[in-house]
Amino acid sequence: MKCWIGGLGVLGPGLPGWAASEAMLAGTQPWQMAEAAAAPPSILPPTERRRTGPTVRFALAAAAEATEREPDRGALETVFATSNGDGATIAGILDAMHTPDGAISPTLFHNSVHNAAAGYWHIAVGSTAPSVSLGGHDGTFAAGLLSAVTGVVARGRAVLLCAYDTPLPPPLAECRPTAFPFATAMVLRPAQVAGTRAALTLRYVAEPLAEPVPPTEGLDALAAGNPAARALPLLRALAARRETLIGLALDETAHLELQVTPC
């Protein structure tokens, strides 16, 4: 399958937006670890904005940046990929339910659905376009990319892919460690347009990915700390405008093979 990538967003440790991080991702400027933060999404009306937690804020920040130059971002179909969903909200409900007389807040409950960030995004941009939210554990970014590229190829429409995850609070954090928040977004299209950065060819391979020893320091080491950060090899290839072959694990038995060809 083949599509074209243009319009990128990222928000993670030491990566405060695509524009501010491009040189670091390309390796032409040094990267330094720094805590990532997401502001309340200004694209949402104030009543909705107040109801968003960090997870939705990270997702919407990346999606907003990736679509900054879109003439009509409401026209884009969307794929929202997250492993943990809004873990803080889910943990809050679990805590409340296991506290004597603990009551669940209605807002907390509707924010607990896995497609909460997608729901807020479509409200923010007034979009009635189709949207799918999915999960894939550590292979969540790969699953989202597979779904988004499949959508582009099967339906011939542009798709906004947004992948995001934030750490779970205790006690879930011990069972599912996530080292830091990370979000990335990209617009995938069926044809090349002005501003397209690269062509992406994607192939599903029903074999385990032969992974080299994972890097333990620097920017590349971030990939292991958050399912959405598994996008880093692709983001780095796009930033460097470098022709690259990337293996991206879906799980321990299958992977995607990505061929990135800069335009």
Binding site: H114, N115, S131, G135, G136, A143, L146, L250, A254
Partner: peptide
């Protein structure tokens, strides 16, 4: 099976 496995969650 050995094809792709995807978990959809749209409420």
């Amino acid at each position: 099976l050995r094809g792709p496995a995807i978990a959809v969650s749209t409420a």
